[in-house]
Design a protein around this nucleic acid. Sequence first.
DNA 1: CACTTCCCCTGCAAGC
DNA 2: TGCTTGCAGGGGAAGT
Length: 292
Amino acid sequence: MPELPEVEVTRRQLEPLLVGRRILAVTATAASRFFLTPPASVRRRLPGRRILGLDRIGKHLLVRLDSGDRLLLHLGMTGQIFGAGAASVRLMSSTAGASLSPERQTGGFAGDRHTHLRLRFEDGGPDVLFRDVRRFGRVQLLRPGEPPERLAQLGPDALEVRAGPLAAAVRRRAAAIKAVLLDQSVLAGVGNIYADEALFLSGIRPARRARSLDAAECRRLAGALRRVLRRAIATGGSSISDFVRPDGTDGAYQDERHVYGRTGEPCRRCRTPIRRLVIGGRSSHFCPRCQR
DNA sequence: CACTTCCCCTGCAAGC
DNA sequence: TGCTTGCAGGGGAAGT
């Protein structure tokens, strides 16, 4: 699900649910790729810690703890973080959803086999759960001063992208502009949906070689990226297959999409059918008439 | 290096 | 109805 806007929406809703609370106990599923730090270690080191803040870096969430440790969370494709009292947590597995629905209605979602991390708090308030069906998400507990390698390699946050630096990065790359936008070391936070949408808004085809973009196109692209990301945050993100906000409600940006997932449907500007092609193993959507 | 492909997982929808 | 195939918003490893 989650690209920068969805992660930022999650951060904003989660912050009041986390900050100031002291962790009482942690439950976690068995060791797997999901846990970059072994779950036994996470269970041992978190209890007793108070949460000081919640930051977003690209598509990562960073929970700051009073011990100086930081809990790094990544939602992958299907990650959901929410309070146990979320009004209507929409679950991906229909079978699990059906069997759990009475509990969800009473605000007591007990977790299921896809719930990999659960925090309980000393104040007895709602638990916070991290659920991820496909397990492409990640959990890592960083010690004070421990360099988080995965963060160090990130480019500037896409919300703040400027035309100049974008042009400089793009000029050196022979790959398709779409692939370059997805490269987190160039720009942190852009994913498949918003790359396609920003390319549409700036009139650039996704398969164009990055270094073929001129200065005006880089300016339009930087502006389109900022605009589409800000608008997506304002509308609560895109809920296309399984993104739900921590409060259990859907975002609304999917209703404003121009190209993503609209293959064969008429362009909203010129009525030409939207085309799809695969770039760097990811589907890309564009209007052959509005985009050059 | 830069670039591409494969693969990790599970669930769903479409086609037969 | 049941089986198979393709597809999914991320990203790291391994290949060329």
